[in-house]
């Protein structure tokens, strides 16, 4: 049992990979390095897919690129509504990033979403985007006035929501990934053969992609509410 705790702790801890020797040393954690790897893969694929686009006589590569982009866009645009459509590219990027980050554990990397820094960053960016969308759409005055809706007495709750929303987004993603990771580790301890594969289908792939979808879904729901 002590062995389990030890290895679990080791897996859960995000180690510092290296330290940049300026300002007294900046620690770069593993999640950031894995994020770089994900970024490199995504940008490489995007570069390969997005090259040499033509209007007619399209190649197979372009057909794939168009299908992917159109599917992702329609997926997100259905959730944000017509007013929030200009935020679609960011939401699609986040969707793909979280999706890859959640299932990258299968390839032997440590999921970046298992680090609270990453999920917190995602949640903070989401809430900034939501509030920015509200201000951009209605102007500062109306945006401030929205806090007193529907009645003035709920204003504290509305203000509180600005902080609870990113917290809930952050913790949901983090907890889900962490929880499924811990459960997978426990299953691997008990039955090392076959069973982990079956469960990893659910916990790693299905749950990981679902959580990515839920994250983007909630963010676009907030955006829709803000621009309404």
């Amino acid at each position: 049992m002590g062995n389990l705790t030890e290895s679990l702790m080791e897996e859960l801890n995000c180690e510092t990979v290296f330290t940049i020797p300026i300002f007294g040393g900046i620690d770069i954690s593993e999640s950031v390095v894995v994020t770089w790897i994900i970024m490199a893969v995504m940008v490489l694929i995007a570069f390969i897919l997005g090259r040499n686009l033509r209007i007619d006589h399209i190649s197979k590569r372009q057909a794939i690129a168009e299908t992917i982009v159109t599917k992702l866009y329609s997926m997100v645009e259905g959730m944000t509504g017509p007013e929030g459509m200009k935020y679609t590219p960011y939401l699609v990027t986040v969707l793909v990033y979280i999706g890859i980050a959640n299932i990258i554990g299968l390839f032997g990397f440590k999921s970046p979403t298992k680090d609270l820094n990453v999920t917190a960053a995602l949640a903070i960016m989401s809430i900034i985007l939501v509030e920015f969308a509200g201000i951009y759409q209605h102007g500062v005055k109306k945006w401030l006035h929205k806090f007193t809706e529907p009645i003035a007495i709920v204003t504290p709750i509305n203000i509180l929501e600005v902080f609870t929303r990113p917290l809930s987004l952050c913790m949901r993603l983090f907890g889900n990934v962490l929880g499924s990771f811990v459960i997978m580790k426990l299953i691997e301890m008990v039955v090392p053969i076959f069973l982990p594969t079956v469960f990893s289908l659910y916990f790693d792939i299905f749950d990981g992609l679902l959580q990515a979808y839920v994250f983007v879904f909630l963010t676009s729901l907030y955006i829709k509410e803000a621009v309404d």
């Binding site: 954690s29 995007a46 793909v96």
Partner: peptide, 22 residues
Amino acid sequence: MLRIDINLLFTVINLLVLFGLM
């Protein structure tokens, strides 16, 4: 795992760069 530090900022920058490139 449960620490918030400068890496949050790095992640934000990473995401913005990723968004821009994508």
